[in-house]
Structures are given as C-alpha cells and as structure tokens.
C-alpha cells in the first residue's frame, strides 16, 4: 500500500504489442497534441506523448522486430520534478502521478533535459489545428501554447471524470473503469491500466508477473509503468 489515495500504474505487455501505433494516434487525438510535421521532427522537435521505439534483433534473414511503447513513466522519484524552478511539475498526492501545470510553466526545459526517458515535449511554436481539425479538440484538455512543456498525463482527465462519477454514485472507482486513450485503442490489450493499491486489480496481479521489469531501473526513478518482457512469441 502506497501513500497515495490511488497508485495508478500501467502495465505494457511487450509480448502482445505488435507496434501498430494505434495507441500513438489515440493519444494524439485525446490530448490535443498538434502534428508538427516532418521538418520539425527532423530537428528533434516532434510532439508525441507516446511513441513506439523499434529495435531490430538478429541478422537478415533471421531478423526480428521488437517494440516498446514509451511514454512518461510517472516516476516515483522523478528527475524532472526537483529541477523545475517554478514548481510547474509536481507529484500528485492523490493519484501518485507526475503532473505538469501548464499555467505555471515558464519553459526553461530543465525537466526535459533531466528526463532519462525523453518523455517530455516542448512547444516550440503555437499549435496549429487547421479546420476542421479544431472541431475534434478534446474540451477536457487544454491546448498548450508556445513555450510550454508537456507530457503524458496518464489521461488524468479520464481519472478525474471516473472519480467524479464514482463519488456521485457513492462508491469507489472500480477496476478497469479508468482507461487511458492508448489502452482503449490497443487492439491486443497490451496496455492495462489500474490502481496498484487495490490488491485485486488487474495491474496488481500483472505487476507480480516474473516477466515484469521497469525501464532504466538502475537509475532508481521507480517508474509507474511496468513492462512485461517479450518472449519468443514476438517473432515477426
């Protein structure tokens, strides 16, 4: 049991991930992330809260593709948090996740430089949503302006809504009630989301899996994203 009211955790089963990028698109749509275009991506200014890292294993013809969906790891000891001079990023005591407050951010980019996972994205320009794309903006998420740092929020707007519904109905949040956009879009259910504080939740059971590991564990960041190691079944 952790000190948080909920300890939101994500399990990514690498055995199930096919690298289809549906999660990437879902994230982009849910969180009002602008498409910056090829030129900006070439300059390393791509905007993706969630990306698929692809690795090739072996030599042709015995070659195999490996995929790792990579998003903000919502570290318990987040390296991004102590370096912010204006406290624009902090650890939520309620949800146990790493929150970015856009209104406070002054764009020093220290946090992004200190993030070992390259999970933070900076708005180098004002975002463009040419018609009719502006009609599909999610009203639950702010459109970030130029000079603001942003990153995966574990779809905090969905957590907020689920909590409100649960409260109105006088119960606690059920397991599986909160599903981030990436997990919802995943065709193979490789992304499972839930509360680690609940011993009966799906994530609690999967977290005990012997295949489980965290990215760059040796840094001591204690991520809230647990990957399940891909085995021989991931041959493509």
């Amino acid at each position: 049991m952790s000190k948080y009211e909920h300890h939101w955790t994500m399990i990514v089963d690498l055995d199930k991930c096919t690298g289809c990028q549906a999660c990437v698109i879902a994230c982009q749509a849910e969180n009002n992330i602008p498409v910056v275009g090829e030129d900006e991506i070439r300059k390393g200014r791509g905007m993706q809260w969630l990306r698929i890292e692809r690795y090739w294993e072996g030599e042709y013809p015995n070659i195999r593709a490996r995929f790792i969906p990579l998003m903000c790891q919502q570290c318990e000891n987040a390296p991004c948090e102590p370096v912010c001079p204006v406290f624009a990023t902090y650890h939520s005591e309620v949800d146990g996740i790493n929150v970015q407050v856009y209104n406070r951010c002054i764009g020093t980019r220290y946090c992004a430089n200190n993030c070992p996972y390259i999970a933070r994205m900076f708005n180098w320009f004002d975002p463009q949503f040419p018609e009719p794309l502006n009609e599909q903006l999610n009203p639950d998420v702010t459109v970030r302006q130029r000079g603001i740092m942003e990153k995966c929020t574990f779809c905090i707007q969905r957590i907020r809504r689920a909590r409100e519904t649960a409260e109105a109905e006088g119960r606690s949040i059920r397991d599986g009630e909160v599903q981030p956009a990436c997990g919802q879009a995943c065709p193979t259910n490789a992304i499972i989301f839930g509360d680690l504080n609940d011993p009966n939740s799906q994530v609690s059971r999967l977290a005990a899996n012997r295949r489980g590991f965290r990215l760059l564990e040796e840094l001591g960041t204690e991520p809230a994203v647990i990957y399940l190691k891909g085995g021989e079944s991931n041959v493509i």
Binding site: V94, V101, T153, R160
Partner: peptide
C-alpha cells in the same frame, strides 16, 4: 486537503 492542493483537480 490533499485533493485541494493538487493543481490537477481543477486545472486541466
């Protein structure tokens, strides 16, 4: 109080 001082409660 914890929820009250959590910015993300009201700021999206």
């Amino acid at each position: 109080i914890p929820r009250l001082i959590d910015c993300a409660t009201c700021h999206k």
